[in-house]
Design a protein around this nucleic acid. Structure first.
Lengths: 333, 333
DNA sequence: TTGAAAGCGCTAACAC
DNA sequence: GTGTTAGCGCTTTCAA
């Protein structure tokens, strides 16, 4: 890499002259500026980012900590973050907690050494369970701002981006009721997560709040260590009266449609299905899965924007931004 | 952040003493070492990564450039890379080219300023088409090593990690033939990619090389700007004699199963389906999609290993590592 | 209009 | 055993 010093030597001027010239500092003569810029272009000079970071005490890099990139939702959020970051001249360092508290602590720890200007985090499952937030507190204490998205901690004060999982789930259930569905079930493989709980609660609320509903909520909690297909098949066989399903995660809805087709259901006539998913996933089944789209990309964009804001004004009050969901009444509804 | 200087002041010793003590330098007395370490622990001292990077002229950070994180295959590769990187004390900066040449150039450009020690890249579609590799050449010229994975450029010399797409596809086709399938088709939405071409060629090779096969290859190229489901449905209706399908990408196999079920096919008896995908995708359909698993995670791990190797020995000859594929004869086969 | 010098935080060769 | 010093590449204040 070519440095300021190198350029200075070649032009027989001082390093500071070069630096100023490249920054169009009015102290420097037009002539010198053009000479310097030409040379810089010739040698394809790029200011050393690390040196700039050290000097400025900021890196223009944000750490993103997500449970897993293999979850399509988080991949989409990351996509949104990365896009927005790029536009604003920021880089993204990605870490995965795999839902493990210690892994998450390690991520924060490893990047809390000047590597990043702030953290965007979707809190790990174990962290939510054990309620251990010391690593976040440490970061915040060290003046490294945190923005939480989707998986947020109510008891921790920071900027947040969420969707209204409760309302989304409740509304979807209400839509099924409005459509005349009499026996609506709820299936989920994310019961342990806050968002999973909220979605289930939304469903229960809709069911219990409806005077025409006489039955108790019908729920299936999927065990991910066992075959999901057989669990769903057994569930449908044991509950033949079900005519509507809300799926809380982004795969079980698709699987349920496949299984139900096999079992002779006529979707959506004898069975309506709605899932928390996105367009690509919707496309995988016949009929296409009706989806509650969490607008993951938007969540990412918003999370980054809040961070940018925060970095520019460390004293502004903390905000919680709610991103709207989109309900697509596709074929399986 | 607390610095060496801060610690030095508190103990009334010099900065270098602190630095040496923290590095267990034998020049320093045991006593001082413990005193320093205790203080460091007390104040939770973390050496400033940026300063270390500037000093050492390396960042322990690798840039990963992929077409998109929304493609599950690349998400898996990234997962493998991140895991391996973490273990070795490296961070990952992720950039997305969105298959666009200029975006890819920009990524390389923006990180070729000391931000990263090397690049792991899956080349964008447009780059492959236009055969413009100047940005890679520039990086290599600047002594920033490049490891290409999956989407590699034959004419560019660097370390590479690939799978044998041709063989994988050919073998899968041969398996179908061996099973007695008489009319095997090939569907793909990635015809423009090198890997897509290789997969198609593998299929064609198997078909044409088999003396029992009398028909020409039957291929469907999916247009992603139109509805994939109807394209596949039309294809099946126009080719009712098809009894086996190879899907070259990671979604069309699942969709085809859904459609075929609807059309009354009895999978796998009247129609066998094999797709380039992974276990999670396989699980979405009934019956489960038989898959050619590209072992994406392994690709990522290997790519990172090659990079680590390269960083430790810039002069070793370039290698191309081939990662094995796994053929899972699941239900739809 | 230009240059010298200090300093960001760290490491390490070299004094003492 | 500890301290001084220089330097990584850059920015910026102050002096000339």
């Amino acid at each position: 890499m070519i440095t300021l010093k190198d350029l200075a030597k070649k032009l027989n001027v001082s390093v500071s002259t070069i630096s100023k010239a490249l920054h169009d500092n009015p102290e420097i003569s037009k002539e010198t500026i053009t000479r310097v810029k030409e040379l810089a272009k010739l040698y394809n000079y790029q200011p050393n980012k690390i040196a700039q970071s050290l000097k400025a005490n900021k890196t223009k890099t944000i750490g993103v900590i997500i449970p897993s990139i293999l979850n399509r939702f988080f991949a989409q959020v990351l996509f949104g973050i990365e896009k927005e970051a790029r536009v604003n001249g920021y880089n993204i360092i990605t870490c995965m907690s795999n839902e493990v508290l210690n892994k998450e602590k390690e991520c924060i720890q490893l990047l809390s050494n000047g590597s990043v200007d702030g953290f965007l985090v979707a809190v790990a499952e174990e962290t939510q369970k054990k309620k251990d937030f010391t690593h976040f507190e440490t970061a915040q204490f060290a003046k490294i701002p945190i923005v939480m998205f989707d998986r947020v901690i109510d008891d921790f004060i920071c900027d947040k981006v969420i969707i209204n999982d409760f309302e989304a789930s409740k509304n979807a259930t209400l839509e099924l009721l409005k459509k005349g569905k009499k026996n609506i079930a709820f299936i989920s493989s994310i019961d342990d997560l806050n968002v999973g709980k909220l979605r289930k609660q939304g469903y229960i609320d809709a069911i219990k709040g409806n005077p025409n509903v006489t039955y108790d909520p019908i729920t299936l909690t999927l065990n991910s260590s066992q075959d999901v297909q057989s669990q769903i098949a057994a569930f449908l066989k044991n509950n033949t009266h079900i005519d509507g399903v809300i799926s809380a995660d982004n795969v079980s809805g698709t699987i349920l449609i496949s299984i139900a087709n096999k079992l002779g259901y006529n979707i959506p006539n004898t069975l309506s299905v709605i899932g928390f998913a996105d367009n690509q996933i919707s496309n995988l089944s016949v009929p296409k899965l009706a989806i509650i789209n969490q607008n993951a990309e938007q969540i990412g964009e918003n999370a980054f924007s809040l961070m940018l804001n925060r970095l520019n004004d460390k004293t502004r009050p903390f905000v919680t931004k709610e991103v709207g969901i989109t309900f697509s009444k596709q074929e399986s509804f």
